[in-house]
Every structure is written in C-alpha cells, then in structure tokens.
C-alpha cells in the first residue's frame, strides 16, 4: 500500500511539466527514503534524476518498495486537472495495475480522483558516481533559461567555459556567433539574484542546446539553477524542489572527433 499526500500539489505539476518532453515512460520508485525517478531520454544523451524525500510529504506511507511505471505525458495530463493550490495524494495498492491521484482544494470544497493505468517498463538503473567538479556555477534559473533560448536562435550547440573571468556561454551558426559572459556577483538585493562561480580549474565543454532548453522547463520550480562541470563528464543541471528534493539533469557533452 502506497499513500503519499503532498500539500504543495503544484510542485508535482511543475515536476511533470519539466520531465514530460524529455522522457516518455518511466518508473517512479517509492521507498522509505522518498519518491524518486531515474530515466534517460530515448537517445540516451540525457538522464534525469528526481528525488522527493519522504519528509517533504505531509503523509508518507510506503509499506514496501514499489515501482510504478507511468507514461509521463498521461501523468502530466492528469495532474493538469489539479489546481495549483490543491493538495495531491498519490495512492496505489501493492501489485496494482493503476494509480490514483486525488486532488483536494485548499478549503476542501472540491475533491477529485483520477485513476491512471500503470505500465510495465523495463528500466535500466545507472550508477551515478560522486564526482569532484572543476567548476560549479549557481545563477538565477530565469537567466539561464533566457541564455539557452537566445543562443538556440543562433546555433545548435553551446560551449560553456568557466574561467576566472566568469562563465561564458557561446554559440555559432550560419548567421554569426554569440557570446554571453556572466560574472560572479553576490552584491544583489536578494540571494536568488546572485551568480556564484566556484572554480577549481578552468573547464570548457560543448552541449546540444536542444537538451539544455528542455531542462529549463524546470525553471518554475526554483529561482536558482546549479550547473556543475568537469572535463569529459556529463554536465549536471540541478533545480531544487522546494525544501524536499531536487531534479537533476545530466547531459553528455559533444566530443571532438
């Protein structure tokens, strides 16, 4: 028996909106730790790891570890029917072939339940080793989204370079080139407006903008994004999910031939 009650149901809507274009079907794993997911896109270029810790739920009952195979676009359709302020409860019986999403309005005057068919998914679980990163950039998530969107109008790839000057996002295309440099800046009114660059070594990697733009669908989840870079490793683009977890996108770099 699984029963997870999330007061901030809107968070789950935002999580699904940030996943559904990248991954079609995935297993949600429920354990005492929390509600999590790990999935790759169909071409195995990107991987997403979601964790919503059990403590973040108002009520978290998971009698035994359970894997719920869901079509993410169908799950997103169901969650779209919840109000942004609704309390969302996810319920499933052990060995069930469906999952129930229950939506309660904040003042309890409307209660809805949606039942969605589960699917069997052969998913591969990958071990993600702990890595020391050469550079970690924290910046406003909206700024990062703007940069990825702007650069993708000019080129298909972005070179992200971190030096003592700051972090540089560059692209080139048929019409020309573009470079955007963001400097370390903590003299801001609000902490979420800061750009913090921690650099152990200079690093420069090339990535497909199409995927970066897909990751920025998670922007409504968090004011800040963390971009962790190391030579010859996938970049990690991380958004916090309130105080309860994170969504991490890993993207394999382009490799010089």
């Amino acid at each position: 028996m699984l029963e997870l009650r999330l007061v901030q149901g809107g968070l789950l809507k935002k999580v699904l909106d940030s996943l559904k274009d990248l991954v079609n079907d995935a297993n949600f794993d429920c354990s005492a730790t929390g509600f999590s997911l790990q999935a790759m896109d169909s071409s195995h270029v990107a991987l997403v790891a979601l964790l919503l810790r059990s403590e973040g739920f108002e009520h978290y009952r998971c009698d035994r570890n359970l894997s719920l195979g869901m079509n993410l676009s169908n799950m997103a359709k169901m969650l779209k029917c919840a109000g942004n302020d609704d309390i969302v409860t996810i319920k499933a019986d052990d060995a069930a072939d469906s999952v129930t999403f229950m939506f309660e309005s904040p003042n309890q005057d409307k209660i809805a339940d949606f039942d969605m068919k589960l699917m069997d998914i052969d998913s591969e679980h990958l071990g993600i080793p702990e890595a020391e990163f050469q550079a970690i950039v924290r910046m406003p998530s909206a700024e990062f989204a703007r940069i990825c969107k702007d650069l993708s109008t000019i080129g298909d790839t972005v070179v992200i370079s971190v030096t003592k000057e700051g972090v540089k996002f560059s692209t080139r295309g048929d019409i020309g080139t573009a470079n955007i440099v963001c400097r370390h800046n903590t003299s801001v009114d609000k902490p979420e407006e800061a750009t913090i660059i921690e650099m152990e070594e200079t690093v420069s990697l090339t990535f497909a903008l199409r995927y970066m733009n897909s990751f920025t669908k998670a922007t409504p989840l968090a004011n800040q994004v963390t971009i962790s870079l190391s030579s010859d490793l996938p970049v990690v683009v991380e958004y916090k999910v309130a105080e309860m977890g994170h969504i991490r996108f890993y993207l394999a770099p382009k490799i010089e031939e």
Binding site: A208, L233, A252, I255
Partner: peptide, 14 residues
C-alpha cells in the same frame, strides 16, 4: 567536428 556523447559511456548499469 564533434560527435554527441552518450550517457551510457559515462554511467554504468547497476
């Protein structure tokens, strides 16, 4: 020219 890397060449199946 550059070639798109693959996640499976960085992370192993467990």
């Amino acid at each position: 020219d550059s070639k798109q890397g693959n996640i499976l060449s960085f992370f192993k199946r467990v």
